[in-house]
Design a protein around this nucleic acid. Structure first.
Length: 474
DNA sequence: GTTGAGCGTT
C-alpha cells in the first residue's frame, strides 16, 4: 500500500509522483532516481511560508509530523543551485568603524564572538604610538554570522560602531536584499508590532520606522529568501492592510550618472554618496535618509522649483520630493540614455502637481510611489529596467530625523540595540540600561520600543536588473 | 594628554 508523493525539482516545475515505502518514508534513492543529484527534500510551510526541510536519516526521508499531506515537495541540491540568487555565501573581512580608542583586539574579538566564531580580529593602530585608529577588522567563519553582524549596529565599549564590507572588497558579490519596504503603515504600528508580526515568517533583525510618521517602514530579515518571499504581498497588521515590497538601496555605487540630476562627468557625487562604498549601500547602520535641509515638518514640502531636473552635479540639495526617475519609474523600460526630465513620464501624474507646489504629503507620496513602482514592475517584467536609474537623486521624502542611535526621541538612556542577538551577553557593557538583556531567543533584545532603535543596516542589494524601482533608503 | 570620518605597514 505504498502512497505517492508529489515532488518537483523546484517551485514552478511540474511535480511527479514518487512511491513511498511501507513505513511512509521516501527513499533517497527513489528520489535520486528521478532527480539525479538531489540530496534532500523541502516544502513550503503554509503557515510560515518559509521552506522547511525534510528529515533525512540513513537514506530515508521522513514525513513531517502531520504526514506528507498533499503539498508538493521540492528537491534540494547540493550547493543550493536554485538558478537564481547566486549568493556566494562566503565570508569576507569586515571593517568595524567607530571603535573606542581604548578597545583592544581582544575586546573586539570577544564582542563579536557572541555572533559566531571569529577567525580574525584586529584593531588598527598607529605603529609608533600604538594608539588605536578607531577602527578594525573582523572575520567570521560563518556567513550567517556575518549577515547578522552586518544587519545591525553594535554597541562596543560604549560607542555605536558600524560594521561594513570594506571598500577594498567592493565588487565582490555578496548579498540579496534582506530588507523589505512596508507601505500603508499606520501611526499606531510600533516597531515591536511589526517585529512581532513579521517574525512568524523568519527572524527579523531590524525594524525601522521613520519619524516623523511617514506611513511606511522597513523590516529586515536575517534570511533574504524570507524577505523576498513576502514581497508583493499584502498583510494585515492591527487590522490594517499593509503592503510589502522590495526595499532597495538608495543608490548604486556601481552605476553612475543617470537621471535627471546632474550628469556630471563622474556623476553627482555628493557628501552622501561617498559613504556608499560597499555594495551594501553604505554598510553601516544608520539610515541616512538623504536630508539636506529643513527639520522634520519644516519645509518638507517642495514648493516649486526644486524639480526633477534642477540639481546640478553635486547639488542634489533641494530635492525633497521623490525623483520618479531615480525610483526607476521612467515609464519606458530600457531607457538608459534618458538624461533629462523631459524624457520622463510620470505614471502617477503627481510630479507635476507637486512641482507646482501642490500640497502633497510626503509620507503618502512615498508609500504611493512604492506601490506604483510595483505596478510598473509587473508591467515591465521581461523588459529590462535600467539599473542606472538607481543613481542620481536624493530620495528624501520629508526630512526624517537621522538615526543617531542616541534616541533623539526621548531623553532616555541609549537603547542598547546593539545587543548581540543570539548570545545574550551583549557587550558586557551598558547592560544596566537594558533591563532585559537579550533574553529573547529569537532576535535581538530591543529595549522595548526604545527610541532610536533603528539604524541598522541592510545588506543591500546589488545592481540588479529587476527590482530596482523602489523607495531608496540607505 | 586631543579626535570620531574613514578603509587594512605585512
Amino acid at each position: 500500500m505504498s502512497a505517492y508523493l508529489q515532488v518537483a525539482e523546484d517551485e514552478g516545475e511540474e511535480p511527479i509522483e514518487l512511491p513511498t515505502e511501507d513505513d511512509t518514508t521516501l527513499l533517497l534513492s527513489t528520489l535520486a532516481a528521478q532527480f539525479p543529484g538531489t540530496c534532500g527534500l523541502k516544502y513550503r510551510n503554509p503557515e510560515s511560508r518559509t521552506m522547511r526541510g525534510v528529515r533525512l536519516v540513513d537514506g530515508r526521508l521522513h514525513p513531517p509530523e502531520s504526514g506528507w499531506g498533499n503539498c508538493v515537495y521540492y528537491c534540494v541540491f547540493p550547493k543550493a543551485k536554485t538558478k537564481r540568487m547566486e549568493t556566494k555565501q562566503k565570508c569576507s573581512d569586515l571593517i568595524v568603524l567607530g571603535l573606542p580608542w581604548k578597545t583592544s583586539e581582544q575586546q573586539l574579538r570577544e564582542y563579536f564572538e557572541t555572533y559566531g566564531e571569529v577567525l580574525m580580529a584586529q584593531v588598527k593602530k598607529d605603529p609608533k604610538s600604538g594608539q588605536s585608529k578607531g577602527f578594525g577588522f573582523i572575520r567570521f567563519s560563518s556567513f550567517e554570522s556575518q549577515m547578522r553582524v552586518l544587519s545591525q549596529r553594535h554597541m562596543i565599549d560604549g560607542r555605536w560602531c558600524d560594521v561594513k564590507i570594506p571598500n577594498s572588497k567592493e565588487g565582490q558579490a555578496q548579498q540579496v536584499p534582506c530588507k523589505v519596504f512596508v507601505g500603508r503603515c499606520t501611526e499606531d504600528m510600533q516597531a515591536d508590532d511589526l517585529r512581532e508580526y513579521f517574525s512568524k515568517f523568519g527572524e527579523v533583525t531590524d525594524v525601522f520606522i521613520p519619524k516623523p510618521f511617514r506611513a511606511f517602514a522597513f523590516v529586515t530579515f536575517l534570511d533574504p529568501e524570507v524577505a523576498q518571499s513576502l514581497c508583493g504581498e499584502d498583510h494585515i497588521i492591527k487590522g490594517v492592510s499593509v503592503h510589502v515590497s522590495n526595499a532597495a538601496p538608495k543608490s548604486d555605487p556601481n552605476v553612475r550618472s543617470f537621471g535627471g540630476m546632474g550628469i556630471g562627468p563622474r556623476g553627482p557625487v555628493s557628501r552622501d554618496q561617498k559613504n556608499l562604498g560597499s555594495p551594501f549601500g553604505g554598510g553601516g547602520s544608520t539610515h541616512h535618509y538623504h536630508q539636506h535641509h529643513g527639520g522634520p515638518g519644516a519645509s518638507t514640502m517642495n514648493t516649486g522649483t526644486g524639480g526633477w531636473n534642477q540639481a546640478g552635479p553635486g547639488s542634489r540639495g533641494n530635492l525633497e520630493i521623490p525623483n520618479l526617475q531615480a525610483l526607476g519609474i521612467t515609464g519606458q523600460a530600457g531607457t538608459t540614455t534618458g538624461t533629462g526630465a523631459q524624457s520622463m513620464s510620470n505614471p502617477l501624474g503627481m510630479g507635476t502637481l507637486n512641482l507646482g507646489g501642490f500640497p502633497m504629503n510626503p509620507a503618502l507620496m512615498a508609500a504611493a510611489l512604492n506601490q506604483a513602482s510595483w505596478g510598473l514592475i509587473n508591467n515591465l517584467q521581461g523588459s529590462q529596467v535600467p539599473t542606472s536609474a538607481a543613481d542620481g537623486g536624493p530620495q528624501a521624502f520629508g526630512t526624517p530625523a537621522p538615526a543617531t542611535g542616541f534616541g533623539g526621541t526621548t531623553g532616555g538612556p541609549q537603547p542598547n540595540t546593539g545587543a548581540p542577538a543570539g548570545g545574550g551577553q551583549a557587550s558586557g557593557f551598558l547592560n544596566w540600561m537594558n533591563p532585559s538583556p537579550a533574553t529573547s531567543s529569537g532576535s535581538d533584545a530591543q529595549g522595548g520600543g526604545a527610541p532610536g532603535s533603528n539604524g541598522p543596516q541592510q545588506p543591500g542589494s546589488w545592481p540588479r536588473v529587476k527590482n530596482d524601482n523602489f523607495l531608496k533608503y540607505d
